[in-house]
């Protein structure tokens, strides 16, 4: 059954033309989407990076002058350090509170509910997340302001209490942000908690571990990936938020987000705004880079 090994060359090469055509198909499939992303995301980001090194926006006949001044803003304008710190504080408080409130909720969702009711509760938790953030922030103003729902409820219980207004304060910003981002934390922690094998817990129980020990030694470590990815997913957008501080914080709410917004819509100092935005982007990238080393790819993909 050994047959001659020679194959006509022409035929062998005709079957090789298919990959070349396939490459064109692949390129044609990818080009529109990635072309669009390039035009609308990647080129703008590059342009803004370029702007951040300019002395002034290159409109009219103004000459292009390169400078590092904008990145030195934190040194030249010390109040920016305070603003940045406010942003980080808001980020830490929001992330911390979300973790504190969200983790138990996720564990309760994963372990104390079953079947249909679990599905419904899960949907109830994630649904507000998909409703308009602006609308939800606005609705908090009606709860927190003087004469608002909170004030009203308080006076139903204690009629003599002084009027309460949380609106336009640091706590108001944090409450609004926790409300906005809590579903993220519950979602990521739930995915971790739901993956915990009942057998682990039963094994620990059979070895004599009591509930607090089981929580500390088994549930918590296994939920950690969810907790970390949830924290990143919250911290990153929160330090870039600007409408929540504006609406709920009023004059208190001066953050990096509102500073950047101001440079673009009020002060028209685009190079400074660009530099501030890229400083923030740098922080975000560092956070992602660090977390991608700490976390398995699966968690980030979610």
């Amino acid at each position: 059954m050994q047959l001659e090994a020679n194959v006509p060359r022409a035929e062998a090469s005709s079957s090789r033309q298919i990959p070349a055509r396939r490459r064109w198909t692949t390129a044609a499939l990818l080009a529109p989407a990635y072309g669009w992303l390039t035009l609308a995301v990647f080129l703008p980001l590059s342009a803004m990076l370029f702007f951040s090194f300019l002395k002034a926006a290159p409109f009219g006949a103004r000459p292009l002058q390169l400078t590092l001044d904008n990145y030195l803003a934190f040194i030249r304008r010390p109040y920016l350090v305070g603003v940045a710190w406010t942003s980080i504080e808001i980020g830490l408080w929001t992330t911390g509170l979300s973790a504190l409130i969200g983790l138990p909720a996720a564990i309760a969702l994963a372990r104390a509910t079953r079947g249909r009711s679990q599905q419904v509760l899960f949907l109830l938790v994630v649904l507000p997340f998909w409703t308009n953030g602006l609308v939800r922030v606005f609705s908090w103003t009606m709860v927190l302001r003087e004469g608002g729902v909170l004030d009203y409820a308080l006076h139903l219980v204690a009629p003599t209490a002084p009027p309460v207004s949380l609106l336009y304060s640091f706590p108001a910003i944090v409450i609004g942000l926790v409300h906005a981002y809590l579903p993220y934390m519950i979602l990521t922690c739930y995915l971790s908690a739901a993956a915990i094998d009942e057998a682990h817990i039963e094994a620990a129980r059979s070895l004599g571990a009591r509930t607090p020990v089981i929580f500390a030694k088994i549930v918590l470590p296994l939920c950690l990936p969810g907790l970390i990815s949830g924290s990143i997913l919250i911290f990153v957008p929160v330090i870039g938020s600007f409408m929540e501080p504006r609406i709920l914080g009023g004059r208190v709410g001066v953050t990096m987000g509102t500073m950047i917004e101001d440079q673009f819509v009020q002060a028209f100092n685009w190079p400074l705004g660009a530099a501030l935005a890229f400083t923030m982007l740098g922080v975000v990238l560092v956070i992602f880079a660090v977390s991608s080393r700490v976390l398995p790819a699966r968690v980030i993909a979610q």
Binding site: V7, E11, A12, S15, R16, I18
Partner: peptide, 11 residues
Amino acid sequence: IGGFVAPDEGE
């Protein structure tokens, strides 16, 4: 043999 894969050589 089925034609799901093109061979590099042979027929």
